[in-house]
Amino acid sequence: MSFVWTVAEQHEGRLKAVSFELLSRGRALADKLDTKLASLVIGAGVGQPGLRELIQRGADEVYHVADARLAHFVCETWSNILADLVRHYRPVVVLAAATSLGRTLMPHLAVKVHAGLTADCTELDIEPGSDNLLQTRPAIGGNIMATIKTPDHRPQMATVRPRSSVVLPRDPERLGRIIEVPVAEQLFESRVVVHGCRADVEDFVNLEEAEVVVAGGKGLKKGDNFALLRELAAELGAMVGASRDAVDRGWIGYPHQIGLSGKTISPRLYIAAGISGSIQHLAGIKTAETIVSINKDPDAPLHNVADFGIVGDLFDVVPELTRRLRRSKAVAS
């Protein structure tokens, strides 16, 4: 049927924002290919309103694979289910999010169905004439942008960087089909048992989905000084990130680390305080919409990539910024 597919993601029955971001990517491709867009939901507990929202935000069809045993992601089971569906429906493009789930599932699936796969794409397009999917992604720490295609294999598969696309507005009038797909017993992987997800970890952050991130580095001088950033973050509704230097010094936990050996983020606003901006750190923030750098070193490389830089002592600037934001809130309320 040569549809374009997206793999929706859910957590505890709630569809994640990336599921809708993928639809806006998929919609554009399906329109160029003059085909339909389908979204796949594997899991338990996503109700009819959630499935309908996928249609209202761009999907023509929704394949819903629901089973209580699919509450937690198990790569082999997901890959078995998808491989089965891919062989049956023969989609031309399959998109998933470049998340811990998508980046695990898709390479596994690509081997099973002998498809080409491109990781962490920030741009997708259709090549005029050939109808090949053009997949553009940052590589070598974001220092090059490579455009890749898969001329001889179908489906063409890609993972898409979260927060790199704008969600389509919800159209309550949009109609589509919701198809309940049964799961064959033999598709369940028996060699893996998931016990659950430990989210009660002290100070855990989901930086990948954050709208605003405030991060600190070596310039903070000691771990306790992250308190300054936490106060600023509270005013901005931001999450706190860190450079590798700060994490390696034990000032803050690894889930906070941004950069080549940590997380890649694309928030609307990224504020770095006391981070010089190594090539590895820049790799993790280049797709942030707005970058602000606060550093007393005028030659800090991060100042070069910033949209706004303050050459000044973070110990003066950050508290003042926090105070001003707090005051403007107090005035407004």
Binding site: F73, T99, S100, V194, H195, G196, C197, V201, E208, Y254
Partner: peptide, 9 residues
């Protein structure tokens, strides 16, 4: 390590 926490398996 996932976006939502630590998955135990």
């Amino acid at each position: 390590l996932t976006e939502e926490g630590y998955q135990q398996l």
